[in-house]
Nucleic acid binder design. Sequence first.
DNA 1: AACGATACGGAGCACTGTTCCGCTTTGTCA
DNA 2: TGACAAAGCGGAACAGTGCTCCGTATCGTT
Lengths: 186, 186
Amino acid sequence: MPPRKRADAVRNEQTLLAAAAEVFVRSGVDAPIREIAAEAGVGMGTIYRHFPTRSDLVVAVYRHQVEACAEAGPVLLSTEDSPAAALRKWIDLFVDFLVTKHGLAGAMQSDSSGFASLHAYFLDRLGPVCGSLLDAAAAAGEIRADVRPFELMRGIGNLCIGRDDDPRYDARRLISLLLDGLARQQ
Amino acid sequence: MPPRKRADAVRNEQTLLAAAAEVFVRSGVDAPIREIAAEAGVGMGTIYRHFPTRSDLVVAVYRHQVEACAEAGPVLLSTEDSPAAALRKWIDLFVDFLVTKHGLAGAMQSDSSGFASLHAYFLDRLGPVCGSLLDAAAAAGEIRADVRPFELMRGIGNLCIGRDDDPRYDARRLISLLLDGLARQQ
DNA sequence: AACGATACGGAGCACTGTTCCGCTTTGTCA
DNA sequence: TGACAAAGCGGAACAGTGCTCCGTATCGTT
């Protein structure tokens, strides 16, 4: 076994993952390396050492985001005032994550098998989390009970497609409307 | 009506269309503007004047290629030794054209309606041409008679997807195999 | 032939990806 | 603890690209 990584290297890798996620949301997955380095407060060389290609970085952020999104579900459920509020906040995180997810297709040229496995991982991990949020909100009578995680996640995913630079299209607005529709009508 | 274009401007536009088509095939639709300008023997400014954005250029080449491909069908049919030979040559042109077509999706970000209309134009214009080549070859007994233009064009189109830089995948080789299979087995 | 109007070419600028190497930090071992 | 490799870091420097701008050349008209 080779000696384990130095502490600062581990720290930088975490910092980078968080910074890249933030920049991807702000400027897309094609954001300049410099911008990501600046956001993380590290040099460009550090990024290239940890993630030799842009694809490596995007994939790493993807995994990191799936994990963060999955862990956020239960936390939100216990800290927010109501299950419906937790659901809304969770979906906000989910939309941030989708930017990375959609960028992934472009970053991983022609490696459709690797892409498929990441997509499966995503569904396995987040489907149940989304499901428990939906169940909780439904049990509280806050939303209708007949919407399943898959259709909701897919619908939101589709709403987020192609919203690159056209200011006339605001995916988050539409998603908010969708959630309004999800609320149980009294 | 404003005065019509100067002769050299018209000439340059045609030259550019042909040069861009050639470069797209050789280097993809993301080829540097400089390379296209060099191929056409014009300055970069000339390209930007005629086609302000890359998307404009790609769309123009697309239309130009559809037209050229459509006109080539009857010509090949009358100049080649056999309908099957004409079909093979025509498909060769068609594959060149597909490079532009696939690049189009990337170049036209989020303008799916414009893309759809171009796609319809493509089918309307080339379907019949491909059909007449197929019919002629079938009538000559050179190929089986139960393959329709749409499925052939679509099949070839799909074979050309994702062959960007992986040297292990050669779309033209597979297409050639497909055409061998199309030949009437004696 | 002369003279706008139109179009051309490409130098120049801004921005980005990627490499490379001198310097700093870390972990270890006496 | 102090010293010293090794691991890691930062960012200057280089190369390639998109796009603009304007002096120059060409065209069409009178």
